[in-house]
Design a protein around this nucleic acid. Sequence first.
DNA 1: CTGAAAGCGCTTACAG
DNA 2: CTGAAAGCGCTTACAG
Lengths: 360, 360
Amino acid sequence: MPKSRKGASIIEVAALAEVSIQTVSNVLNTPTRVTWKTREKVLKAIDELEYIPNLSARRLRSKKSSSLAVRLDANFTDESNLHGLAPGFIQNEFVYYLVEESNRRGIKVVAYTIDDEEPELLKLKTFMQSRDVDGIILTSTTENDERLSYLKSRNAPFLSFGRPWGAQDKFSTTNPWIDIDGRKGTSEATAMFWGKGKREIGFVGWQGHEPKGGEPRSTGEDRYLGWSEKISELQGKKLFKNELMAFGSESIESGRKAARELIKKSAELEAVVCVSDTLALGCLLELQKMGRSEIEVSGFDNSPISREFGFSSLDQELALVAEGALLILMGEEGNQIRRVDFSAEETLAHTLLSPKLIIR
Amino acid sequence: MPKSRKGASIIEVAALAEVSIQTVSNVLNTPTRVTWKTREKVLKAIDELEYIPNLSARRLRSKKSSSLAVRLDANFTDESNLHGLAPGFIQNEFVYYLVEESNRRGIKVVAYTIDDEEPELLKLKTFMQSRDVDGIILTSTTENDERLSYLKSRNAPFLSFGRPWGAQDKFSTTNPWIDIDGRKGTSEATAMFWGKGKREIGFVGWQGHEPKGGEPRSTGEDRYLGWSEKISELQGKKLFKNELMAFGSESIESGRKAARELIKKSAELEAVVCVSDTLALGCLLELQKMGRSEIEVSGFDNSPISREFGFSSLDQELALVAEGALLILMGEEGNQIRRVDFSAEETLAHTLLSPKLIIR
DNA sequence: CTGAAAGCGCTTACAG
DNA sequence: CTGAAAGCGCTTACAG
């Protein structure tokens, strides 16, 4: 049993199994084309030689890399726009499950970052043109995102995690996305508190994401709507502008301040639905300090913060997001990354998943 | 200017520049072998055709993938051993900077996860054998780590982030690693408090990592030693077992409990050096609750927790770790991933970096 | 169902 | 310094 240091090639496998290299390839890639007996013979040789195909050769010939690219963001740095206690938590969890689910489906994931030296667009272009990846997973897409237009114009397979809020073609099949239904999440948190007998239920949102009316234009607005619509429905009246809501930046201090504002608006406050775990913790700590620990809070993301401090939160179930992402990009059974089909799978091009309320 | 949808190949570039494809390749890979004039001509053609080399072809021929593999861990799940408020924070930050620094040096990073279906060792073997990556970055290496022995036996380039604490050949060049000097970190935090005039300086460590004497066998012990040695030195006496220390699991509740223990041991407590930001926050909150806010705490990792709650911490400077990792794997100038040289670069095979004390 | 031939797009090794 | 030839290890397309 010769074992060359660098691993056997398909030629050695074919020789040992006494078939052509083409048959070995068929066993690996088109098993239905091969008889059971031949297949067994080849698999035995593969096993014996511990043969593992050279991916570069496969990729070069087949023109498929079976790989995806995904960006990692520096959410934790001081320069980052994101603050709070769990910056990057969702993205990291998403990337983790994306890799896991991709690997399960035979797809590799290449991570990249952005810097000042090279525009992201050029990176994407290089990825696609060098055939290093078959498609791109985008996060944090914005309105008029140039990455979207580039990928669309190139007919490249891609998918956004997160709706491109303002985009005109948000619901077109050329703009596939998967996202979490924030509105439903805060709505459920509100209903949960109501079900516990709480009636004075406040909301703490992100500043800059105050309600503007009409369709929501951001995650923050979306989550606001879940609370305001539900509370109106439950109270059986329209919500007024000055009712139980406060807005602040993503920080403990803002959460504390919001709690004080809400208490000022209503000393009868019984619960607070928050747009994030960080703001929820700020509220919680301030309420404790004020001796109002009976007032419950809920957050969003089900980060370790909510677990450690024991308040309810909304889990984004990123494993399901990753699964859904690959379903859109690869189909139910396929092992190929391809563009979303315009006709057959139109319904699949946009997936809105419900977050899971974790009651604590 | 013909622009084929799939991008130009080296043949088209050669034709446009009126040279052989070999010369185009030389311009890209061995520019010194080409005259300035030829180089200019070729670069112009490359620019005009927006030529980007096919990486699969390059990899197949050159037998180099210019890629590294790194594992992502599910630090955030309930099943994870890690708890606290910032699980995975360091790993995620490390991976981020690893990707950034690798990309800067022309190296791709492929992420992978582990699951029950396929042993990690087989994944590593497949990575190396399929020539998908040139080397592996390991984190969370343990004593007698089978990944280490496999990679060593295969003569594969690899590097551990984190010392393999108990390993016999920890300092051999076949076992390259980069790590953070935890001992130095807690020592500096202790000295910082001392410099502020504080004399009763306690320590909160991880349970299971209580001092056992001799060389430290874990990160927890290492960080303990930094405090105990420094405090002995400053106090000018040997530290007694029952002095100002407490140990607990990685949670807010443990931090609270530890604070109560320390206060019980000494009502004169003036500062607490903690092994982690989570434990530090637990201490901080409990001390506040007891009305002892004047007692300062320090953490480890400089996570958003420490920033948000405003206590001192030790930054692991992961950007420098990533830089150092690639220095070991690629050398100062090189663009190749290779095994650590036994002779010339012996001093480079093991890098211990100092964490940076962030005083708040 | 199986196999001989061609070729994916580069870099290497070598000759000039 | 430059180029004609070979070949990396596979899969594809096609013939039998």
